[in-house]
Amino acid sequence: MSTIRIPPVLRENTDGRRTVDVTGATVSAALDDLFAQHPALRDRVTTDGKLSEFINVYVNDRDVRYRDGLDTTVGADDTIILLPAMAGGSR
């Protein structure tokens, strides 16, 4: 069982939960489990069945863009972080 960190902007789709425990040996499988548990999330972070480009995905502290993308393996104690850019600052 690995853990997915839900960014603040997506928590309305996870009943306010900040983390969701998932099963799956790859990032892709873990996300499928996440979407199965919280179906509304799928449309917010995927486009044509693919994870949207504006969401950065990290396994522990490593960006999967520099590993095997969505095929990156996920271990039982790993944490997956979903990270869309944040805008707020001044106003």
Partner: peptide
């Protein structure tokens, strides 16, 4: 490098829309 693509507005609301904790900044 970090964010090659800008998210749509609904995924990145400004503080004026979303709110922000006073001590956070």
């Amino acid at each position: 490098c970090m964010y090659p693509t800008q998210p749509p507005d609904e995924l990145a609301p400004a503080c004026s829309v979303a709110g922000v904790l006073g001590v956070l900044p």
